[in-house]
Design a protein around this nucleic acid. Structure first.
Lengths: 212, 212
DNA sequence: TTAAATTTTAAAAATTCATTTAAATTTCTT
DNA sequence: AAGAAATTTAAATGAATTTTTAAAATTTAA
């Protein structure tokens, strides 16, 4: 594996081929899913031949597993990280919505891919990642309890809050073909629509959290 | 095609084979998606042989198209129908959430299937269905405008409301493997969780809609 | 410069899959 | 019972895909 290329002399040299294959594979997998993606397409997209893919990754399965794991982590890790920053609650909610919205706007295919492949596979890998305890004992969960105890907000299960926020941010992206069509919006207009939600979602959540 | 069976005499007789194949195909397609579903699996699930599938539906594609169209309509038509009933706004919101939640609980695989296949295919069929105008000129859209004009609620784009509600109801179902795992809930417990949301979602929306 | 590591090219073997066909059998209709 | 429709069986075809192999070409490092 060549890692560092002498950039001064030859700029045309292929950047790390392993990464190039992975990047191409990710694109194709995201667009077509595991079964829809054909190794020929991936190889073409990567600009290499099929044999080389097998040289780096033993099989389509292994290539997929690596990519899915990374993609899952970027999809889900991103938001839990944001949630666990030590910021005041209301600020945090605005910030999470803002940044996660940007994230899904820039990676529009990622959510459907993760959600649908997650449902199809057995996903033994869940057991490896110890996400469970991470969330329960999280700063965010504690923060919600404390604010509720202080009477600053209504008590709420952090999972409900997570589900509501992710739903409100992610759904308009995964249902874009449908929503864009019924609204008759164009590309740009629909992006505006998604950005408008940066206001609506936090306002809705804060309105709900406000104690009676 | 045999349509009417003499029910008095023979109850064991196979129910309409065409429907049997379609039902089996729907199950398999929902679980595995178009490319993941193999005609052999479908034939087995239907308890018929492959040749017979081709006798009724010319190809896998045609079988899929029929099923996808029906599934899409049941997924999306269901909620727009509910939205357009002539009920007072707040009652309607509670009702939509309640009934659509029940619907997705009973058809948990349907949303991911629709959303992910929608993203993969070209979906020329959208043009056939004239959903666009149906939504814009809907009773629901008018209702929202009128209530806002009366000062009963804050003004809101009906599409935002639709996206928020669907997201809040649908996301916890499509992300179930993930959410259930991080929360450590079992089947039953997770269903309870979904039902709790019948309270949370409408309250959140009403809290947002309340004018300042 | 040479040996080892990497990459490309080519190809073929093995497998899986959707589809087609034809013939045989069963079930339904009249 | 006769003829039509539905269903099964089995086989074959052909295309697509994955996997494997072998060797040539290139690059890298000692």
């Amino acid at each position: 594996m060549q890692k560092e290329v002498d950039e001064g002399v030859k700029n045309k040299l292929p950047l790390d081929t392993e990464q190039k294959i992975k990047a191409a594979a990710k694109e194709v997998f995201l667009r077509k899913g595991f079964h829809g993606a054909k190794v020929k397409d991936i190889a073409e997209a990567a600009g290499v031949n099929i044999a080389l893919m097998n040289y780096y990754f033993r099989s389509k399965e292994q290539l997929f597993e690596q990519i899915f794991l990374e993609t899952f982590i970027s999809f889900f890790g991103k938001i839990t990280t944001l949630f666990n920053e030590e910021t005041p609650l209301e600020v945090k909610i605005w910030k999470v919505v803002d940044q996660y919205t940007d994230f899904v706007i820039e990676n529009p295919l990622l959510p459907v891919f993760v959600l649908s492949e997650m449902q199809k596979n057995e996903l033994t890998f869940f057991k490896q990642l110890d996400v469970a305890s991470i969330f329960k004992t999280s700063f965010f969960a504690r923060q919600l309890r404390e604010e509720a105890a202080l009477g600053n907000i209504r008590a709420i299960d952090p999972l409900h809050l997570l589900a509501t926020m992710m739903g409100s941010i992610v759904f308009p992206v995964v249902a874009r073909p449908m929503l864009q069509h019924i609204s008759g919006m164009g590309q740009e207009q629909y992006k505006e629509f998604l950005i408008e939600r940066k206001q609506i979602t936090p306002r809705m959540i804060m309105a709900y959290l406000k104690p009676d």
